[in-house]
Amino acid sequence: MWIKELWHKLGSPRWFYQISSPWIIGFGVAALVLLTVGVVWGLVYAPQDYQQGNSFRIMYVHVPAAMVSQSVYLGMGVAGFVLFVWRMKLADVAIAACLPFGIMLTALALFTGGVWGRPTWGTWWEWDGRTVSTLVLLFLYIGIYALREAILDTELRGRASALVAMVGTINIPIIKYSVDWWSTLHQPASITLTDKPTMPPEMWMPLLVMVLGIYCFAAHNIMSRMRVEILNRESKTRWVRNLMVTDTKPIQNV
């Protein structure tokens, strides 16, 4: 079974290090193209919103950041599950790589949300449902980050943060629902997977491009951070030393 083989290979950081380079370049190029197209399309070609005017163009950076920050946390929860059940080293590397990027992206989503709220609702900060969900997400991230800072042993640090990430992931639906309970001001979700979007295509197409672009950027960033993390941890092993010494072709700085 090829799946089983792949699973065993995934356990080895060395294998990931060796195969990840083309993927990182691919995701990086895709992110660059998609984000450039998306930003130009969203800023210049997308029609104005009849109510919000041009301030709705903030959506093209706010919504992708908010979406991807949630996905990154979800990915961390899945990595935590994998680490807990199969003790896969690579999963801990993934958690470590997801954390800083996720925190930055969540903070960005909050900031752009506030900037968008000023012309739309007339206030920089509104305790609206999705604001609170995003803020809770940021605190969940920060909790795991603080926990990882506090534990010195690598293996225990991984397992503790995996446990917290799993519990957090299970709780996220409940938190979101409870926060929606009293949410009022925000408009309904822009892109949903099941419903037809309420926006015309010339408005949501650039959003789709931006979302894909941020996803690619996230993949690029997280995978390259994983490579740095792997080299840090395995710096004493033979394969890293051999890689540094015998490799005649320059190692890509991705």
């Binding site: 903030i58 752009t112 900037v115």
Partner: peptide, 19 residues
């Protein structure tokens, strides 16, 4: 940006900065 330049450029700028 139709009077919303500050907000639009602030959010796009912060995004570029973070990325």
């Amino acid at each position: 940006m139709g009077g919303h330049g500050l907000y639009v450029w602030l959010s796009y700028g912060s995004t570029v900065l973070v990325l």
